[in-house]
Write a protein that binds this DNA or RNA. Structure first.
Lengths: 195, 195
DNA sequence: GTGAAAAGATACTCACGAGTAATATTACTT
DNA sequence: AAGTAATATTACTCGTGAGTATCTTTTCAC
């Protein structure tokens, strides 16, 4: 790769960015190549120098999101053995990390979770990992044994995603306090002690 | 309205049904009038006897779902004064009713919540009602006073919707036991008593 | 039975947007 | 300065699918 390639890579990157913004705002079919290309200051045929089709650039964005997310998950795995924190703070920190990740690139997040036809599979993947972690904690006796951790994992996934879209990405709520509130809610429940 | 209109109404209804199935499966833009019409056994121009455009039939489906949902909510309002049941069962029954409603017409549910561009507003509406109910219970002392009921309401909405799509609509889980588990989780939390 | 309106079919138009062929320009190497 | 590959443009094609103009068939009222 010599110096010549620099401008091309730059164009490619700008196309990816513009496409992400357009897809996130308008969805796949409502997004036109002509619009993407106009935002970048190029013409239609230039697009096809860098991407073989509209599907191709969309797939690339999705797989970028997918691999970023995988990276996050892997890194969380490594912290499994951090036993020096109490359960509540450990969980809150993980939740906050997910929030921060989803907030980092809102366009990709929207594409990866709302537009991606395989979003359900992706969520299911995450849920499985979450379930495994929770089940381990349960076996250690932290959680009530009668709870079905599969359901809990699905609930937590749904909540994190939804709150990301309505609170975190718009920047309405602080991720730290939101994470703590969430963990508190799921751990302690809503009921008042003095019933 | 004389007898002559009967066949027409029939065709209209069948178009609505076929359209709902197609939209639910493929989304708005991927759904072709030609496909809808073929399923019903009509030709393209007949479609335009009953609906002015593709948007029109889509809007009609959405507003049908919307008004059905409103009806459900209103009917739940009336049961506010049923104080003879304990809190847990009352909540579980409401949750189950929502599950059953969403399961009743899966196509409409998918259109109303996944495809509807105003789905967020719809969810927000429901969340507000839920929040108000929960806040009332909180003021009666049932729930811990430090909990932010806005967040709880959003969590519960997200959970109900997500579980509907993955468990209830596919018929994987029984609505009754699922509702009870959910309410138990949110009321009691996950923590084991003997920590 | 006949007229009229509803219901539907045939055979189009038309816009739009993805993708291409051929050509020009830029910029770097030697 | 000349050659060359990367980068970009002008000027198209072409399929698709929404929507329409016009004609035919059905169905009921009288």
């Amino acid at each position: 790769m010599n110096e010549r390639g620099l401008k091309g890579l730059e164009s490619r990157m700008r196309l990816l960015e513009a496409a992400a913004a357009e897809f996130a705002r308008n969805g796949f079919h409502e997004t036109k190549i002509s619009t993407i290309v106009k935002k970048v200051g190029l013409t239609q045929p230039s697009f096809y120098i860098y991407f073989s089709s509209k599907e191709a650039i969309f797939e690339e964005l999705i797989s970028e999101f997918h691999s970023n997310l995988k990276k996050l998950i892997e890194s969380k795995r490594l912290e499994d053995n951090l036993e020096h924190m109490d359960l509540s703070n450990r969980l809150a920190e993980i939740v906050e990390n997910v929030f921060l990740f989803l907030k980092k690139d809102p366009n990709l997040t929207r594409i990866g979770f709302s537009l991606n036809p395989k979003a359900d599979d992706l969520i299911a993947d995450l849920t499985i990992i979450l379930k495994n972690n929770l089940t381990t904690e349960q076996q250690f006796g932290y959680f009530r044994p009668e709870i079905d951790m599969e359901i809990v994992a699905k609930c937590i996934s749904a909540v994190i995603l939804h709150l990301s879209f309505i609170y975190v990405i718009p920047g309405i709520k602080d991720t730290k306090s939101l994470s703590l509130q969430l963990v508190d809610l799921f751990l302690q429940g809503m009921l008042n002690e003095n019933d």
